[in-house]
């Protein structure tokens, strides 16, 4: 369970999040909202990449401000642009990076990397430069690199924004198949229609917090009003 208590966030003197309190325990949670609504910054609070200016974020009781290292192991994070997330030149090296940071010995690393690449249909590319993968394959690699570390939660920040329809479906299937609880920031309303809970962010606040249909209706209304 992730508990957010009275959280406000200010970046460069600009208020980004205003007094948010939430408790997240569902398996599939979506965060939607317009550009600049604060949803990406909110996502970064969940694994301690950012710490709140006020209030606290706790993951299974651990405070992101005090136990950032442990929390990053618990909460995996997939970024919007896989090109900024893949940090090693060769596919299997990149998957092994997180495992190396966990202190897992080289043989086990190789085996775990092989398994996860198989699961995401990337086995044939394991020794290839990551740069030569297609956009969808890169995003799958980015997800594989996070999941191989076996986090308890996965946060995905606009994972389908840069992809074409076919690749969107591949990522969508990959998200459906996750064993972990997933929190997905997205503009893609199709992606989230079967989710357990949808949060609509607007201007640094939670505008709606409901099941998908009701929340998405509020979101569309708000967009039309503005």
């Amino acid at each position: 369970m992730i508990e957010i208590q009275n959280v406000s966030l200010t970046l460069d003197d600009r208020p980004v999040l205003r007094n948010i309190s939430l408790s997240l325990s569902e398996q599939r949670i979506a965060i939607v909202g317009s550009n600049g609504s604060g949803k990406s910054s909110f996502a970064r609070l969940l694994n301690g990449l950012r710490t709140p200016t006020e209030g606290s974020v706790r993951v299974d009781g651990l405070d992101t401000r005090k136990q950032a290292r442990d929390i990053r192991r618990k909460v995996g994070f997939v970024f919007q642009n896989p090109d900024n997330q893949i940090v090693f030149p060769i596919v299997e090296e990149d998957v092994a990076f997180g495992l190396k940071n966990l202190g897992i010995p080289p043989d086990t690393r190789t085996e775990m990397a092989r398994d996860i690449l198989q699961r995401y249909g990337l086995s044939a590319h394991s020794k290839h430069p990551a740069h030569n993968l297609s956009g969808g394959q890169k995003q799958l690699l980015a997800i594989a690199g996070v999941l191989v570390m076996k986090p308890d939660y996965v946060v995905l920040d606009e994972p389908t924004t840069l992809l074409d329809l076919r690749n969107k479906l591949r990522i969508s299937n990959a998200i459906d198949a996750l064993e972990q609880a997933a929190i997905v920031v997205t503009h893609d309303l199709d992606l989230v229609k079967d989710f357990d809970r949808v949060l609509v962010f607007e201007n640094g606040r939670v505008l709606a917090d409901d099941v998908p249909n009701a929340a998405l209706n509020r979101y569309v209304e708000a967009m039309l009003d503005a």
């Binding site: 970064r44 694994n47 990449l49 290292r69 990053r72 192991r73 995996g76 994070f77 970024f79 642009n81 090109d83 900024n84 997330q85 940090v87 990076f97 997180g98 940071n101 966990l102 690199g145 996070v146 570390m149």
Partner: peptide, 15 residues
């Protein structure tokens, strides 16, 4: 502009 996301991504994977 990329540098911010890249270093976040590295930290997020426990470096």
């Amino acid at each position: 502009k990329m540098s911010e996301d890249i270093s976040d991504a590295i930290d997020a994977r426990g470096f």
